[in-house]
Design a protein around this nucleic acid. Structure first.
Lengths: 111, 111
DNA sequence: CTTCAGGTACGACTTGCATCGTACCTGAAG
DNA sequence: CTTCAGGTACGATGCAAGTCGTACCTGAAG
């Protein structure tokens, strides 16, 4: 089976409190900002975001993002994929990703 | 002197991280939700939000909201006023207040 | 003046959370 | 098989933050 065994809440069950708590951390927010800017929404590797923290801590952060419903984690056994749940987020919290994208250091305005 | 000696950051200096950290707390978020829904943006008393916490803790939460740039606190000496910084927030983080307003228990949609 | 309610300052306590060390699992490559 | 890199599980640690107790200040009302 190819992945997706790690699941978060349904689109309608996304909790704004959990989302804000997830985005309160600088590292998690930088991940979400990168994802928000990349309009291709392609699956990304966990270490494509170079976070200055240990891999155990990265595991923790990605879990928080998944449990908040912001990303999907695709488990391949010895490798993991990350994908932004853009449609679900836009449906439940329209404009949130734009706020994150506007914070992109490259000045990558959503237009 | 009529108030406003308590000041937060300038409109352009609002930090998304500080805002998310402020909104991560349930009590602070409930205050902001109430403020976001009330389009009159009139000055409100501190205990017009009935929070199930002591007054010292309320002082703490309002301070966090002010330092995040979300509200103004008007000091009258023995009384205090609270006012939402709607224009500044909308300018810097357009759509944020709509997200909060949509969480209002009364189903008070922003329009 | 005294009384009283609203608010703050300081400190203590407790919980939550970010972080990492150690150990272990998984799958791919030799 | 062994080796190795990516990832997880569990536990410990350190720090930030939410909460409240006590004491004090401020202004209004008697």
């Amino acid at each position: 089976m190819t992945g997706m065994n790690l699941v978060g809440p349904e689109a309608d069950a996304l909790d704004l409190g959990a989302v804000f708590r997830a985005l309160a951390d600088e590292h998690r927010r930088s991940v979400m900002t990168e994802l928000a800017v990349d309009r291709s929404d392609s699956e990304r590797g966990c270490n494509s975001f170079d976070l200055p923290i240990s891999k155990q801590t990265q595991t923790h952060h990605f879990r928080v993002l998944r449990e908040a419903g912001l990303i999907d984690e695709i488990d391949y056994g010895n490798r993991k994929g990350i994908r932004l749940r853009r449609a679900d987020i836009e449906k439940r919290f329209p404009g949130l990703l734009a706020l994150l994208g506007a914070e992109s250091p490259g000045g990558t305005a959503p237009r």
